[in-house]
């Protein structure tokens, strides 16, 4: 097994680090950090199931049909709280409802459970990118009264922006390469692994942060 295969298979286990940090600090975590911990737990469970199914040579793409909407609901909940200055909670609730309806329709008619749900992932990635830019905009409009580098949301937001900007194109086009270009898929996944590890790093910093005035 080469380094890339090893990282591809086991990089998700790095999520144990933020999970452990979150569990140790659970009583001191702020609300948004608790939700970050939930995101980490969801991702770890989902990646473990997909890895297990992959080892058993069973189609694991259906896992993403459940993981993506759950992750979306939690992450958007974090942004709902952080962006309450810019958008009302109702806007977020309506948008979440519409998107979930779209995902269900997509999974039933357009991209069934045994296919990769790139439509759901692509649209959610776009939403995450917009929300992360909106968060930066909000910070410029109404600066925080504590230092930025000690703000958990800043680190999570940076991780979200970097990861989803980096992988957006891949998720849009991956279905075109699935059956044709095997080396291309490996390269894409290698980059995805790199971005995932980076994102895990941001999870860790976000959970370790203690806002200071």
């Amino acid at each position: 097994m080469d380094v890339l295969s090893f990282l591809s298979n086991f990089s998700y286990l790095l999520l144990i680090i933020p999970l452990a940090i979150g569990m140790v600090k659970r009583k001191k975590l702020r609300k948004e950090q608790r939700l970050v911990l939930v995101l980490v737990a969801i991702t770890l469970v989902s990646d473990s199931i997909t890895f297990y199914l992959k080892v058993r040579e069973i189609n694991n793409l259906w896992v993403y049909h459940f993981f993506v909407p759950i992750y979306f609901l939690v992450l958007v909940e974090i942004y709902k709280q952080e962006l309450s200055v810019l958008f009302s909670g109702k806007v977020f609730d309506i948008f979440r409802g519409l998107w979930i309806a779209f995902v269900i329709v997509n999974s039933i008619w357009f991209q069934p459970l045994n296919t990769f749900n790139s439509n759901a992932i692509t649209t959610s990635s776009l939403v995450y990118i917009i929300l992360s830019l909106a968060y930066f905009y909000r910070l410029l409009k109404k600066p925080l009264n504590y230092r930025l580098e000690t703000t958990p949301m800043f680190w999570l937001n940076t991780g979200v922006l970097l990861y989803y900007s980096g992988t957006l194109v891949m998720f849009i086009l991956i279905n075109n390469f699935l059956d044709e270009d095997r080396p291309a898929i490996i390269n894409f996944w290698a980059l995805n692994v790199f971005f995932s590890i980076l994102f895990t790093g941001f999870y860790i910093v976000s959970l370790l942060s203690n806002p200071k005035e």
Binding site: I129, L162, S165, L168, N187, F188
Partner: peptide, 16 residues
């Protein structure tokens, strides 16, 4: 595929 890899990296650098 190389072009797309370039685009992915470009997007990442842009976000950075």
């Amino acid at each position: 595929s190389q072009l797309l890899l370039g685009v992915m990296l470009g997007m990442f650098v842009l976000a950075l």
